[in-house]
């Protein structure tokens, strides 16, 4: 069974954009080890000849008519914004980090 290191969990947390304390990382690496051990069972029956199923319905390319319909107003769309300015979402700086 693939072991998962604390460093790997820290890396996953960075990928998932979740800050984690040292004790959270310790705890989660232990739990991940156990959970991964249990779910790895899927490999026992997943032979090369078995096709994958990603979705219960066999449908593809579902389109709607290309017509304009009413949508949220600017004010409605911004109504839950943590911060706004000049009728736009105001976000922290996105350039110049790391």
């Amino acid at each position: 069974m693939a072991a998962i290191s604390r460093d790997e969990v820290a890396h996953l947390a960075r990928l998932a954009r979740i800050e984690m304390t040292d004790s959270e990382l310790d705890h989660l690496s232990d739990e991940m080890e156990v959970i991964l051990g249990a779910v790895a069972r899927v490999q026992e029956v997943a032979g090369a000849e078995v096709p994958p199923t990603s979705h219960p319905l066999d449908m593809k390319n579902v389109y709607r008519p290309d017509v304009v319909v009413p949508s949220l107003t600017n004010a409605q769309a911004l109504s839950g914004a943590p911060a706004q300015e000049e009728e736009r979402f105001k976000v922290p700086q996105i350039l110049g980090e790391e």
Partner: peptide
């Protein structure tokens, strides 16, 4: 492949 891929195959089964 080992995890998500295998799980999708189990879904077929």
């Amino acid at each position: 492949d080992a995890y998500y891929g295998s799980a999708q195959k189990v879904r077929t089964l």
